[in-house]
Each structure stands twice: as C-alpha cells, then as structure tokens.
Design a binder for these strands. Sequence first.
DNA 1: TGAACATATGATAATATATTCATATGAACA
DNA 2: TGTTCATATGAATATATTATCATATGTTCA
Lengths: 104, 104
Amino acid sequence: MHKKDEYMLRDLSEVELLELADLFKMFADSTRIKILYDLFDGEKNVTEICEDIEMNQSAVSHQLKALKTAKLIRSRREGKSIKYSLDDDHVKTIIAMGKEHIEE
Amino acid sequence: MHKKDEYMLRDLSEVELLELADLFKMFADSTRIKILYDLFDGEKNVTEICEDIEMNQSAVSHQLKALKTAKLIRSRREGKSIKYSLDDDHVKTIIAMGKEHIEE
DNA sequence: TGAACATATGATAATATATTCATATGAACA
DNA sequence: TGTTCATATGAATATATTATCATATGTTCA
C-alpha cells in the first residue's frame, strides 16, 4: 500500500488524489457549474456570462480564474473583451455523469 | 432564460444546479476520494477503510455518512461491523474522467 | 492623450467544511 | 447481564472558500 513512504491507493498516488480533489472542487460550486454549463453553448465573454448566470462581474472573474487555473477553460482577447471557452472534453462528460446521478 | 421567476440555464434548473454542486462536493475532498477509490475493490468495513486510507475512525465515519447521504455508497450490517460499498456506477466513471483530465 | 468600456485583482467579511475529542449506540458472546 | 468490539454522533476548533467592494489594468477610439 506504500511506495517510498508516500501514501498510495493502488495506482493513485497521494499527489494525484489531491489533484483529483482540486479538480472536482471546480464542479463543487454552483456559480462555477453555471459558468461551465453556460459555456456549453460555445465561446462567451465575461459580460455575457455575467448576464446569463446573473452574477456580478467580480465574482465571475474570480471564478473564471479558478477554472482557467484548473485548465477547464481557456481565454483569448478579442478587442476590448476576453472570450472564454471550454478547454476540455471531460467537462461535458463529468457534468453529464453528475446529471445522470442526480436524476435517478 | 427564465421559467416562473426561477433561474434556469437551458435544461438545468437552479435546483438541479445546486444538487449537481452538492454531488461534486463529495468528490472535492481527498479523504472522500480515498474512501470511494478504496471501495473500488469491493465491500469493506469501517476499520478496513480506516487502515487503508490511514485516517482515524471518527473522520472516516463522518465522511461515510456524507457519501451515503449523497447516495454514492450503501451499507449493511454484518455482525458487529458495517460493510460499505459503492452504490452507483457513475462514481467510477466520474473519477475515471477526472483522472484522465489530470493526466493530460 | 484621455475618456469610456471590459476585465482582473487584492483585501475583507461571512459562511462552509473537515478533523478531533469525547461519548453514545448497538451487536456479540462469555 | 455485562464486557468488549465496531461504528456513529455532537460539539468545538481550525481552516478553506466565496462574494463583495474598491480599485487597478488594459483596450479602443475620438
């Protein structure tokens, strides 16, 4: 059960476990889920996202940063605004799985 | 974008969004992920889980309760001990998806 | 260049969450 | 029945997280 004094559960190391938990934290907040789900439609800028999910700009920007750090979304500048989009196909799958679970 | 004054993002209601976030909260803590991952092997009692993940009994019991409330695990008594097991196939899929994401 | 717009960020306060400790509950068996 | 083993639970503390406010940064265009 151990490898070089580091906790390990089968093929999942302690580090990977923490990374997994951090990843799922991104889905563990309704504001962030709203943002991710909103981006299912495709690329949107911050203002659009704020309007869609009815949250203020600062809160949204903070969460966008968290999602970007987690590599779930990416951004690019277009003129004055910044366009955000999903950066990983797993996002849709993970949310879909969660949706199936709660619908049972 | 609205339905009877209730926030709605396409086919996902505000209530469902909160349920989704609550579900993913279960995966957003390394102790709980360890427990879930430990149960990939099959049914285990509390003492075994504590040993496997190297956490004290009280902490594990508290988290088992949370996971059970979320319907991710189930339990049955067998003599003096209580056996826990996964209660949903989505658990494995969700963790697998997360694992793929962090491995990229 | 400077005004207007879009987004990001730091600090703070409010809230939520996890672990620990002490103790309770419940089953088994001598 | 009462002692032991296994698990659950309540309270308290410590820590993490989120939204808000104020302000900073960066872009466009007159």
